[in-house]
Amino acid sequence: MAFQMGEETRTFPITWDVSANKYKIESRGLRILTEGMKDKKIRGIRCHECDTVYIPGPFYCRKCHIEIDEVVEVKDTGTVMSFAVDMADIRGNPLPEKRISAMIKLDDCDAWFIGTVENMDWKDAKVGMRVKSIWVDEPQGKFSDIDHFEPI
């Protein structure tokens, strides 16, 4: 016998006020990164044991589990490790223009940034391609200071 759904039960719509939450985050590495971005510099933290460079940097090495504090500056060029071509927004609505969103490993560091790659046809995008950061004219110390990446 096929399953028959029963009578509709009552529904009570609610909203959840996320602003009631006050999250604390590890912010020293984030501050070092965003402060540097005001001068178009990208800075992270290097582990003196395993040489891993984190951006934004935590003040402990996630591999060695030791405290680390060496601030290093890395290049704003990098390599595409993987990418996706966005065709819909976060709610699934189609985007007017297809957009390459890439995981980019910046030179001299181990962290994979996510950023959009522009000024190229998405069909030409490849894992391993080289890209550079395109900065805004007047950086504010925010992630949006890097407007996008472009192929080198």
Binding site: M87, D89, I90, G92, R99, F113, H148
Partner: peptide, 11 residues
Amino acid sequence: TGRGMGGTSGG
């Protein structure tokens, strides 16, 4: 919009 640094889309 999901554009720029950290931006990703499609949930």
